[in-house]
């Protein structure tokens, strides 16, 4: 499938405007991993309320999300991302169920690695209080020291270890 994407600088400029609008209107940045956290907190407190009550992590997060983890800003924003991404897929005719992988691995290997990568990202984002969107990108926009350190750590590590994982991609 041959598709054309937007010029990256134009896309970056538009993304920057979206981020700027977010900061100007709401005073906060964009995010993504926070919605995953909300989903986990909601699920665990739904299934095992006793456990959630006893655990410091869940109870603290429940408190900061006013006991309603799904009614959070980032949950709504991520729902929007799904809608917006889907809409873009229609516009550019890219809606298909596929798995992308490097030429030297199988589909199921790729899915396994995607799961592991997601797992690491989910954990790492808890330490860094945000992922590429919430900590690195939004942090860079407001020139937060922590956000920029996290950004450098993400990409620095990526480059440092890329060689060892080259079989996955090239």
């Amino acid at each position: 499938m041959k598709t054309t994407y937007m010029n990256p600088y134009l896309a970056g400029f538009l993304l920057g405007l979206v981020l700027l609008a977010t900061i100007v209107i709401t005073g906060r940045g964009l995010g993504a991993s926070g919605a995953l956290k909300s989903a986990v907190v909601a699920t665990v407190s739904g299934i095992a309320p006793q456990h959630a009550h006893e655990s410091k992590f869940y109870s603290e997060n429940l408190k900061s999300l006013h006991d309603n983890p799904l009614k959070a800003w980032l949950v709504f924003e991520v729902l929007g991302v799904i809608i917006g991404g889907f809409f873009s897929g229609i516009v550019s005719d890219r809606l298909t169920f596929t798995t992308e992988r490097g030429p030297r691995i199988t589909n199921s290997m790729r899915l396994g690695f995607a799961l592991i990568g997601g797992l690491l990202f989910g954990m790492g984002a808890q330490f860094a209080r945000g992922c590429t969107s919430g900590a690195a990108l939004s942090g860079m926009a407001v020139l937060s020291t922590g956000g920029i350190i996290t950004m450098m750590a993400i990409f620095g590590t990526g480059y440092a270890v890329a060689y060892f994982f080259r079989r996955l991609w090239i």
Binding site: G117, F121, T157
Partner: peptide
């Protein structure tokens, strides 16, 4: 900030995405 970033760096190269 550093530890989280390093873990996410591994996640990026292994998983191919960010959240």
């Amino acid at each position: 900030a550093i530890l989280g970033g390093v873990i996410m760096g591994f996640g990026f190269i292994i998983g191919g995405y960010c959240p």
